[in-house]
């Protein structure tokens, strides 16, 4: 589809127009960091960010979510019957999502919606959400999206993409969904020189990201060969099992289900983000724990991202190279280094 153009001065009015019809999430500066938040005013959106601290997965899959509710009152005729909690699935927009995070949603889709089971909350929010992305002109030193089958200008997960051309945003509308949402705003066609400018920015951004490891080499390895390899002792050594990596990751979707009771007479069943870094994650009622050791939990996380997901779906790794785990790890465990070790089959200096 043809490119449109929004002058920076016109941008707040465009956001306001979107907000009149949709709930709009955008990066908002929060202390030293950026996070996606539902906008209350158009001016709060700040696209001058590298990437948000936490991935936007929480927009589709909140960290804590009521699944069901029930009454425990003895005199209630429906006592103990678990019922759906009403939810708002009205249309919404994530504005400024990076191409890597949008690709992450596609990888998450494979988990939440298989042929056999559809997670109703993920599916309905996903359907209600339009992704207007922002291409990365200046990737971070921790970015490695091009290694894992996406890139700073990758449009595969997006409904529309903005490119910051300095004085304004070039806008590519990519899907029907994107067309419908952006149909409500007045857009001008992009000036002729914009296409060349985008190509130039794209080439520059892609060039700035080195190749970190070879996912195909990992796919070719025997699972048990790398699972049983001695290098895990070295990889896991510094890990604190803090779970920060799983919390920030756009493709860490694991959750717990817990019941919470208020005032003894009514309660909720909740779904809460959980982490394979925690020993309780796999702890049986009997006391047995198949992943009782830290090394097993660290191995599980990296094997899942880089090996199991590749083998299960054949669509590449469950990693989009956003680099959040690399930036935030308190002991500097680096998934790029782990990827090199898995691909080469040893922890020799890469």
């Amino acid at each position: 589809m043809s490119e449109m153009f929004i002058a920076k001065g016109d941008f707040p009015a465009i956001i306001e127009r979107l907000m009149s019809r949709y709930r709009v999430y955008a990066p908002v500066k929060n202390g030293r960091y950026y996070d996606f938040a539902a906008l209350k005013e158009a001016g709060a959106a700040d696209l001058g960010f590298k990437n948000t601290r936490v991935s936007p997965k929480g927009v589709l899959y909140p960290q804590a979510e009521r699944m069901f509710e029930y009454s425990l009152a003895k005199d209630d005729p429906e006592v103990n019957i678990v019922k759906e909690t009403p939810k708002d699935f009205s249309p919404q927009v994530i504005l400024g999502i990076r191409p890597c995070d949008a690709k992450g949603f596609k990888l998450d889709d494979a988990n939440f919606c298989s042929d056999k089971f559809k997670d109703p909350w993920w599916a309905q929010r996903r359907e209600a959400t339009t992704l207007i992305g922002l291409a990365c002109n200046t990737p971070s030193s921790t970015c490695f999206c091009t290694t894992v089958n996406t890139g700073p200008f990758d449009t595969t997960g997006l409904d529309a993409m903005l490119v910051d051309t300095g004085d304004g945003y070039a806008l590519q509308v990519l899907t029907e969904k994107g067309k419908n949402v952006l149909g409500i705003v007045d857009l001008k066609p992009a000036p002729a020189q914009v296409a060349g400018k985008i190509e130039e920015l794209k080439a520059g951004a892609e060039k700035s990201i080195p190749t970190a490891f070879d996912p195909a080499a990992i796919a070719q390895k025997e699972t048990l060969e790398i699972f049983n390899a001695p290098f895990w002792d070295e990889i896991h050594f510094g890990c604190l099992n803090c779970g920060t990596c799983t919390f920030l990751c756009p493709t860490c979707w694991c959750f717990d289900i817990q019941d919470e009771v208020q005032e003894g007479t009514k309660g909720d069943r909740l779904r809460l983000w959980d982490s394979c870094m925690f020993s309780l994650f796999t702890f049986h009622g009997s006391g047995h724990n198949p992943r009782s050791q830290k090394v097993q939990r660290v191995r599980q996380r990296f094997m899942h991202k880089l090996k199991y997901y590749q083998d299960k779906y054949g669509t590449g790794t469950a990693c989009v190279g956003c680099g959040r785990c690399v930036q935030a790890c308190p002991v500097n465990i680096d998934i790029r280094q782990v990827g090199r070790i898995l691909g080469s089959g040893c922890s020799c200096p890469a």
């Binding site: 298989s114 056999k116 997670d119």
Partner: peptide, 24 residues
Amino acid sequence: LEMRMKCGIGICGRCNLGTEYVCK
């Protein structure tokens, strides 16, 4: 096999043996 499970439908992520979810 027995495993700790939450969702029971292969989504919540805890009962895997490699690529296979024990629940699903």
